[in-house]
């Protein structure tokens, strides 16, 4: 999926949106508002001129930790292998996962090419969350449907998942990780090693 480009596009254009909300507040408005404001903040921080790769990664990490429910995303991405993981394995996995995700997406903010974002609405999700719906219009491609799952977590709005044309970030990670775990006969160490290795490789490519 064009996950990175779309995220960039969405966040970038969210920044320019700042649309006024209807006078009568709908239940999902808060979630839509959150996505808009978070996007504006992200784009300001990540497209500032003359950022080094290190600064970019560090800024992205701050935004990711602030705007996303990282703990939830990490354990959902581990799926059925989370409950059987030891405390030690869990506390090792979550930061490795975060490093991997941050490394993938941060550097992508260097590239952005004219996508337009059109926020539409929010739909209630079970458990008190909202799916904020948006269209991403690419200049030379089809319109893409994007959905942000936003939940209140400890009194703050947090993004738990992003779905692009039905492709969920969490499901994609979970399928990938399960595959890697299966290849190491059900052991988590194989996944941890693979994450470390991939993150290091991506970091090296970014700085090289």
């Amino acid at each position: 999926m064009a996950m990175r480009r779309l995220i960039i596009a969405v966040i970038f254009l969210l920044g320019g949106l700042a649309a006024p909300f209807p006078a009568h507040a709908e239940p999902g408005d808060e979630a839509v508002d959150f996505v808009n404001k978070f996007g504006a903040r992200a784009i300001e921080a990540l497209t500032a001129p003359n950022l080094t790769d290190q600064e970019l990664v560090s800024r992205f990490r701050t935004l990711f930790e602030d705007g996303f429910d990282v703990a939830y995303i990490a354990r959902s991405s581990l799926g059925r292998f989370w409950p059987r993981a030891s405390e030690q394995e869990r506390s090792e996995f979550v930061p490795l996962f975060e490093d991997y995700v941050v490394q993938i997406y941060a550097i992508q903010f260097r590239e952005y090419s004219g996508e337009k974002f059109d926020a539409r609405s929010a739909r209630a999700l079970p458990g008190g969350g909202f799916a904020v719906l948006s269209d991403v219009v690419r200049p030379d491609g089809p319109t893409t449907k994007m959905e942000w799952s936003v939940y209140p977590v400890d009194g703050k709005q947090k993004i738990r998942d992003i779905k692009i044309e039905g492709v969920s970030m969490i499901t994609t990670y979970r399928d990938q990780f399960a595959n890697t775990i299966l290849q190491s006969n059900g052991a988590l160490t194989g996944l941890m090693d693979a994450l470390k290795q991939k993150t290091a490789q991506l970091a090296a490519e970014a700085s090289g």
């Binding site: 999926m1 458990g127 969350g129 449907k145 039905g166 492709v167 969920s168 969490i170 499901t171 994609t172």
Partner: peptide, 28 residues
């Protein structure tokens, strides 16, 4: 493999929304 299967489910549903965030059982 994951993307293909997710996309097909989405196509078959004609983009009708699914409920919630992947997680559910075994996620606590």
């Amino acid at each position: 493999r994951s993307l293909y299967r997710q996309r097909r489910i989405e196509d078959i549903r004609n983009g009708e929304p699914t409920e919630g965030v992947p997680g559910g059982s075994n996620m606590s």
